[in-house]
């Protein structure tokens, strides 16, 4: 058994480990609380995970290039609020409203990208600032009390199922798969890893560093805005604080999934598994009737436990392989 484990290449091991943990927890949940291990419960969990996972798509890219995107929270809120306001519950508005919101998301991302690459502002601060501007826009537009409804088509996406799988999960799977492919097999994806590993060397290798950075933040803004729209479909009405937890949750998902904060290491598969794990634990705890305080505490403890696992692994690997100096 151990021999089999060793044969699996490094990158796949942690992914497998995560999914093993997920299955294990599902099983435990099923044992403790009948009805937990059911399609409907899984559906609910995966739907929540899809929201985090979609935001985590952009966040993973940002972390891979050694940055971070704290503007995703406000952008999700923007998607939700502007979505409902612009759609006003009518399908005719779908095309232009959704396009407009996605465009705003991209614009915010480009602003981030420009600030980080041309002005040299640290990503944490730049995205924080952009997030503040977006928050302002959301509040001003809605005056704190957003109105409007999601269109029927959007509601179908947010709430409906296809082949017993929530629609948002299908969208997530499709987009997530595309992202993984891009990261592994395209020059753009490879460029992201180079950038994250050593920006100067990437520049000297002729990579268009500024373009990649801007594109990454633009994509992050896009996925965050998209998530907000889908969430509007799920909740039907808008919430100003819809995106509040998403910056931290998307980062947590990526970190649990093995994406290193220093950049250049990790992939989207791990982040997706991380999103599922987070939602699973939340759901499990709710099922156990643990109140919000307890759930928050568990959330934090899980992150620490998983992170310690990764760092111990990396430390061991580094000290074993290091050639004598």
């Amino acid at each position: 058994m151990m021999g089999l484990w060793r044969k699996i290449p490094e990158g796949w091991r942690s992914l497998l480990g995560l999914w093993a943990a997920i299955l294990l927890l599902f099983g435990i949940g099923g044992m403790i609380s009948p009805g937990f291990f059911s399609v409907s419960q899984a559906g609910a969990i995966f739907r929540s995970a899809s929201f985090i996972g979609l935001v985590a798509m952009g966040q993973t890219l940002a972390i891979l290039i050694g940055g971070i995107d704290l503007s995703v929270g406000p952008l999700v809120s923007l998607g939700s609020v502007f979505g409902c306001l612009m759609l006003a519950g009518r399908d005719e508005n779908n095309l232009w409203a959704i396009s407009a919101i996605l465009l705003i998301g991209v614009a915010a991302g480009v602003l981030n990208g420009v600030g980080v690459s041309l002005l040299g502002i640290s990503p944490m601060v730049m995205t924080l600032a952009t997030g503040a501007i977006v928050t302002g826009a959301v509040l001003i537009y809605s005056q704190g009390a957003p109105t409007g409804n999601a269109s029927p088509a959007l509601r179908a996406v947010g709430v409906g199922f296809t082949w017993s799988i929530p629609n948002s999960v299908l969208i997530w799977l499709a987009l997530g798969a595309i992202l993984s492919l891009v990261l592994k097999f395209t020059t753009f994806g490879r460029g992201i890893y180079y950038l994250g590993a050593n920006e100067t060397a990437a520049r000297f290798s002729g990579l268009r560093v500024n373009f990649i950075k801007t594109a990454v933040y633009a994509l992050s803004g896009l996925t965050a805005a998209l998530t907000g729209i889908i969430i509007a479909g799920y909740t039907s009405v808008a919430f100003v604080a819809a995106g509040r937890d998403y910056p931290m949750q998307s980062i947590a998902a990526a970190v649990i999934g093995g994406v290193a904060m220093t950049g250049g290491r990790g992939g989207y598969g791990g982040a997706a598994a991380g999103a599922v794990l987070l939602c699973l634990i939340e759901s499990l705890l709710t099922n156990l009737n643990m109140q919000e305080p307890g759930r928050k505490i568990m959330n934090g403890l899980v992150i620490i436990m998983l992170m310690s696992f990764y760092y111990r692994k990396r430390l061991d690997a580094a000290s074993k392989k290091k050639a004598a100096t």
Binding site: T186, T187, R190, G191, Y193, Y194, A197, N198, T200, A201, A202, F204, S205, G206, L207, G264, R265
Partner: peptide, 24 residues
């Protein structure tokens, strides 16, 4: 180490970093 190599990436990735356009 500071400017021309990607320490945490593989030798293969390091070698191909300037030839991506050609190898794609």
């Amino acid at each position: 180490n500071g400017q021309s190599s990607f320490p945490i990436l593989s030798i293969r990735n390091n070698i191909s970093s300037a030839s991506l356009a050609r190898l794609s």
